[in-house]
Design a protein around this nucleic acid. Structure first.
Lengths: 192, 192
DNA sequence: TTGTAATGAGAACGATCGTTCTATACGCTG
DNA sequence: CAGCGTATAGAACGATCGTTCTCATTACAA
């Protein structure tokens, strides 16, 4: 097993375990067993548990960014690209492993005691907001639409996580359509 | 100090500490010291730490419900009552102690390992959604508006918590206005 | 004043966790 | 086959935590 294969295996396993049960609830020994490596190798690849946590956060960021962008690119017009955000959520919420946004969860668990984690979560959310802002600009909509859609997406994530249902994605998508059309000017009744 | 004064003191202290640093990061001894009671008294009032956690959740639920309803009742018409939800968020986000929704945070930290906590968080969110649904019904708006506004409120909470700014409340409020007006029928251009 | 029940401070216990160390087994080179 | 470096399993260590126990002190009743 090569260098990066080991890291891939460790980080994928840690991602799954941390997502399913929380970071503090998963000890290094359980991670070692699940990843099928020795403790020595774990500490040879990462100096500490928090280094693994940060690596998992980077992995989640890549996965989210690539997954979202992949779906957005399939949409055929700017309006559809904005709505694709919510189609992505629908798909995500339907996965068995879905337990809410990993950044919100990790921030809630460790943000208060780990500045590293808090900063990374902030950066991830800022990056998502920037991405949405770009899609909004591409659609020729006013910039205030960006935060509105970002907030809808965030709310759908926590609502779906706690309620344990996927419907929040569709409800958020319906709201997004109204907001998009309003921002694009379709809403002015007597616009002559 | 009377029976209930002691419980009030313990729960208020626990609420503050758990909110500021997370539940697992605050030990029983620190809570004991901050509340100014003996360890014996702590365990005399509550059988375990998780009992204190549940008591804190109940306290938070009461505080949220009463605070929100108090502001909503001051609004003079159904539309203003719906928007009062977001005024409440603005006020809340501005507090120094604000660190996100305590139910989302606790759910993220313990929901996966504590069914009690997960259930209570679910109930709290369901109760909020019911409350919003009632306000929507009172406003004569279609029922789909309820989840839309609830999702906006949830999203504002996590966005404000992670970004550390209050602007999400105003952005969500602006979005809510659009959604409310659209749902109330103002949106149909040629409605004759 | 004396005996008793309750209280408080803090030691103690057992479990768990992150991290390091040790001793054994393995694989490669000559 | 011999010898050496390396990886592995798992013991060990020190810290922390939830919970319980000890024991000295206090408040009060008779």
């Amino acid at each position: 097993m090569s260098f990066s294969e080991i890291r891939e295996r460790i980080e994928a396993t840690a991602d799954d375990l941390y997502n399913a049960r929380g970071i503090q609830a998963v000890g290094m020994d359980e991670l070692r067993a699940a990843a099928g490596v020795s403790l020595k190798k774990l500490y040879q690849e990462y100096p500490s548990k928090s280094a693994i946590v940060m690596a998992v956060l980077e992995r989640r960021h890549r996965s989210w960014t690539e997954g979202l962008d992949g779906l957005v690119r399939q949409a055929e017009n700017p309006r559809a690209r904005l709505l694709a955000i919510f189609d992505y959520l629908t798909r995500w919420f339907g996965e068995d492993s879905f337990r809410g946004c990993g950044f919100i969860n990790t921030f809630a668990e460790l943000g208060a005691v780990s500045p590293e984690v808090a900063d990374y979560a902030r950066q991830h959310k800022a990056s998502f907001q920037d991405y949405v802002a770009q899609l909004v600009a591409d659609a020729g909509a006013p910039s205030y639409l960006g935060p509105q859609l970002s907030i809808l997406a965030e709310g759908a994530q926590t609502t779906a996580a706690i309620a344990g249902s996927t419907e929040a994605a569709d409800q958020a998508r319906a709201a997004a359509e109204v907001l998009i059309d309003a921002a694009l000017g379709t809403e002015t009744p007597g616009a002559a």
